[in-house]
Simulated scan of single mutants.
Amino acid sequence: MDDEEARTRLLDTAEALFYTHGIQAVGMDRIRTASGVPLKRLYRLFPAKESLVTAYLERRDGRWLNSLRAAATRPSDPRDRVRAVFDWLAEWFAEPDFRGCAFINAYGELGPTAPEVVRTHKSELRTLLADLTTGPPTLADQLLILVEGATVLASFTPGPTPAHRAREVAELLVPATDPKG
């Protein structure tokens, strides 16, 4: 196994274990065992648990935002773009392994010591929401609150309903503030 394969195995394993059980509940030895990567190589690739946590979150950030962006930018109408965000969330919330937002979960566990990627992710999500509509700057903040609130609620009661309710509220906001509405 070369370093690239070992890195992929470690990140796949870390993501599955951290997302399911929490960052603090999973030690490096458990990741080593589950990934099959020797401890020496693990620590060569990720000298500390913090570096593995950061790499896991960075990879998840890219994949998550790219998937949401692809779904939300397909429609040309800003109202349909906003609807697409909540439709995408509804599908995500209905996945059997849904455990809430990895970034909110990480911040909840680690607080101010959470990797910077946690804050960056939320900032990039807000920027994406702002890019989807031509409404006032506050609209992106309102949509972000709806996205985050729905995500937190769905972590307690998995399923698409929180996304559907948030979409209903978003539809009230967008036509009233979007010049194209």
Rank of each mutant, 00 (worst) to 15 (best):
A154V: 02
V53C: 01
E171P: 04
L89K: 05
T20Q: 12
R99W: 03
A70D: 12
G149P: 10
A130D: 09
K180G: 10
R81G: 04
C101F: 00
G108S: 10
G100A: 02
S35N: 08
R79K: 14
E148W: 00
L17K: 05
G181S: 07
E91S: 10
T33R: 13
G135I: 08
L89I: 03
L39T: 14
A71E: 11
D29C: 09
R69Q: 11
V174K: 01
D178Y: 09
V26K: 08
V53H: 03
P158H: 02
V174G: 02
T13R: 04
S35G: 00
R126C: 08
G36R: 09
V82A: 01
E50Q: 13
F98A: 00
T120V: 15
E171D: 11
P137F: 09
A94S: 15
G62P: 05
V26Y: 02
R41W: 05
P137R: 06
W64V: 14
R74Y: 08
K122Y: 12
E171N: 10
R167A: 13
G100W: 01
V26R: 00
P75D: 03
L11D: 07
R69L: 04
E171H: 12
K180A: 15
A130T: 07
L144H: 13
A16W: 00
R44P: 04
T151V: 04
R41N: 06
V82P: 07
L52C: 08
P175E: 10
L10P: 02
I31A: 07
P112L: 14
A163I: 05
F18V: 06
P47M: 02
R79Q: 11
D12C: 02
S67V: 03
G159Q: 01
I145A: 15
F156P: 00
S76W: 12
E171R: 15
R99I: 01
H164G: 01
D3F: 07
W64H: 12
A176Y: 11
L89E: 06
D141A: 13
V82T: 10
P158V: 05
P158D: 06
T73C: 07
R41L: 15
R119K: 14
R83T: 14
A163K: 02
V118K: 01
R63G: 11
L89T: 05
G135S: 06
S123G: 11
R126L: 12
L10A: 06
L173D: 02
R44S: 13
L139Q: 05
R30M: 11
G62N: 05
V169P: 04
F156T: 10
D87N: 14
P160Y: 09
